[in-house]
């Protein structure tokens, strides 16, 4: 009896181990290996020959020479997009929280539209509506509009979720009973208690903005090219090594950016809790 039980539990253990192993291998195979291959390709002298042709940073330098502007533009764009979604998204989340359930549902769905419909369609609509304003159309602000449209729900949703979870309305009522006006309430109670949602939103917005291709590809001009558009260019028109070197640069840019935001969020949360003591 006891032996059969231990055999069975050993069997369960065994199966669990196998499943975990398969999962881990799948993650490696589809997430890590391709990235490593791509990075490696960007560093080899000749990908067709293989690693034996030697390692080089030549491709990286070449990409940097060709696309430095795109890279910087992407970063500026992502930060500007973050700024806009913060300014629009946090108050919007608060508004959604306060307004009636039915309206909130409709507005949220409208906000999700640019995510749900293909980016090409959004971009086309923007071109139809504002394409004739040449100054605007040719500037990076035009792409910014597209990015903000696309990323706004990703800021609103986590912020709204946090607001609902901590019952911001009740907290605000308490603050107002203690004499705090609307602005004071916003900065002393609402904002500091929503940092986790804002941080989650900010990470999404930056990532999505830097990687956004569909809308940007339609809206860009030769002078307003972002990283992914440049990447598509180089894959299409140049050696595989250059495209791969591009990926490498992409990774080098985005990883520190995300780490920085995460760190900044933690710092802000710590500072907020210290400043009120």
């Amino acid at each position: 009896m006891s032996t059969s039980l231990s055999v069975r539990s050993a069997g369960v253990m065994h199966w669990r181990f196998v499943l975990q192993l398969i999962f881990t291998l799948a993650v490696c195979a589809f997430m890590i290996v391709p990235v490593l291959m791509s990075v490696l390709a960007g560093l080899t002298e000749n990908y067709l020959v293989g690693l034996s042709s030697g390692l080089t940073t030549r491709w990286i330098a070449e990409v940097w020479g060709l696309y430095a502007d795109s890279i910087w533009l992407s970063i500026y764009l992502a930060l500007a997009c973050l700024g806009c979604t913060l300014l629009l998204g946090v108050p919007a989340a608060y508004g959604l929280l306060k307004c009636r359930k039915r309206w909130a549902a409709i507005i949220e769905e409208l906000l999700l539209m640019p995510v749900a419909i293909p980016g090409l369609a959004t971009a086309l609509a923007l071109l139809l509506a504002y394409g004739q304003f040449h100054g605007f159309r040719g500037s990076w602000l035009f792409i910014l509009v597209g990015h903000v449209l696309f990323t706004l729900p990703f800021m609103i949703r986590p912020v709204l979720a946090v607001m609902q979870a901590i019952d911001v309305v009740r907290l605000e009522e308490a603050a107002s009973s203690l004499g705090a006006g609307a602005i004071q309430r916003f900065f002393t109670v609402i904002l500091p208690n929503c940092t986790s949602g804002i941080l989650a939103g900010a990470l999404m917005v930056i990532t999505l903005s830097v990687g956004e291709f569909n809308i940007t590809w339609m809206l860009h001009t030769p002078l307003t090219k972002t990283l992914p558009v440049g990447l598509a260019d180089s894959y299409a028109s140049m050696r595989l090594e250059i495209g791969s070197a591009y990926t490498l640069i992409f990774l080098l840019m985005i990883l520190p950016l995300l780490t920085l935001i995460q760190w900044f969020g933690q710092w802000a949360a710590r500072r907020a809790s210290r400043s009120v003591q």
């Binding site: 901590i166 019952d167 009522e173 705090a180 006006g181 208690n193 907020a272 809790s273 009120v276 003591q277």
Partner: peptide, 28 residues
């Protein structure tokens, strides 16, 4: 309400999670 000068105690406390005990009490 902020001009009425009332004190309120709620069922679910409604304490500010971003502040410690002393800061909550001193908020007003």
């Amino acid at each position: 309400i902020e001009k009425r000068d009332v004190g309120m105690v709620f069922q679910n406390y409604a304490l500010f999670p971003n502040m410690n005990v002393a800061a909550n009490i001193g908020y007003g």
